[in-house]
Simulated assay, not measured.
Amino acid sequence: MPSTPNTSMPSVMIAIDPHKRSWTAAAVDARLQPLATIRVPVSRDGYRTLLRFARRWPDTAWAIEGASGLGAPLTVRLRQDGFTVLDVQAKLAARVRLLSTGHGRKSDEADAVSVGVAAHTSSSLTTAEIDSATTALRALVEHRDDLVKTRTQTINRLHTVLTHLIPGGASRDLNADRAAALLRTVRPRDTAGKTLRALAADLISELRGLDRRIDKAVHDIEMAVKACGTTLTELHGIGALMAAKIVSRVGSIHRFNSPAAFASYTGTAPIEVSSGDVVRHRLSRAGDRQLNYCLHVMAITQIRRDTQGRTYYLRKRANGKSHSEAMRCLKRRLSDTVYRQLLNDANTTT
């Protein structure tokens, strides 16, 4: 386990491993030792039991793994009652568990202890801030992502069925209209062929329904982005969907005291791997991967257009950096740009 506690933290961390139906809490002291654990149901009584559990120690703070995800309901209640909540990323807690004496063995209690150790030892944690608008926006984005995932699965199943009906199957860019046109050319006479054709027709109908629901979800996201007043869409490479993902996952930009802290959260702060006289940096696998993906899309879009991002990227390549190294530099620069835009939005509304 890491052995350097953060001395600015309270003496005991009440760390939570949240699930849909239960919260597992561990009290971890400044020596990184677990004092006690408890598991309660996700309910009003469970919340009260957690508060009584925390009152056993006079100097405490709360830390939740995924405070804006599965831990959001508990985070909201704690924030409403005036408690400060630290947001511990799942990867950070997993790294602590892997380095522990338990050799990565997983249980709810061990996960909660790992969250507590991570909260004590990490200097880059942010305070969880959740408001209703951000929660609603994140729900819309996740709903759209789930629909897209289901659509992909349906397309894959349709490809498999059409392979049995049409020699060579269908092309990769399959959609409902193309599939329907292909199906009209098939008139099987045997039982298996008729069954497969009926199944393909059902999948096409399901695909059309998913397309309509995805279009509605995209429209709802666009309306929500306009309503929240963000100016992220003014940046080249960020559309309504990317803006929604960034706003919903970042929450309050005031949680980050500098562009460097924000870059660490987005996973765009490079990690030095120098040796001797050779100074190099590698990609950071830490941080929020969804935010990192948004910045990656933004970087790719800017490189393909006549933008300042493309000019910066080409300058890095001319200085001898590889494509990957130049991309990492550009994403770090774009992280600062997004940070300033979010900060300006927040200061304008206040």
Rank of each mutant, 00 (worst) to 15 (best):
P2V: 15
P10Q: 08
I14A: 01
A15N: 05
S22W: 05
A25G: 05
T37F: 00
R39D: 02
V42E: 09
D45N: 10
R48E: 15
A54Q: 10
R55C: 12
T60V: 14
A61Y: 00
W62N: 04
W62P: 08
A63I: 04
A67G: 15
G71D: 11
D81H: 10
R97H: 05
T121L: 08
S122A: 15
S123D: 00
S124C: 11
V141T: 15
D145V: 01
D146V: 14
V148I: 12
Q153K: 15
R157T: 11
H159S: 04
V161R: 03
L162H: 03
L165P: 01
S171N: 06
D177Q: 10
D177N: 09
A179R: 07
A192P: 02
A198T: 14
A201K: 10
S205F: 01
D211A: 08
D211K: 01
K216S: 14
A217P: 03
E222F: 01
E222A: 12
A224L: 05
V225N: 08
V225M: 07
T230M: 06
T231A: 12
G239R: 07
A240H: 09
V247I: 10
A261R: 09
F262S: 05
F262C: 04
A263I: 03
T268P: 05
T268Q: 09
V273A: 15
R282C: 09
S284G: 06
S284W: 01
L295H: 02
T301L: 02
I303R: 15
R304H: 10
S324G: 06
S324I: 09
C329V: 09
R333A: 06
R340F: 07
R340M: 06
Q341K: 13
A346Y: 10
N347A: 13
T350I: 14
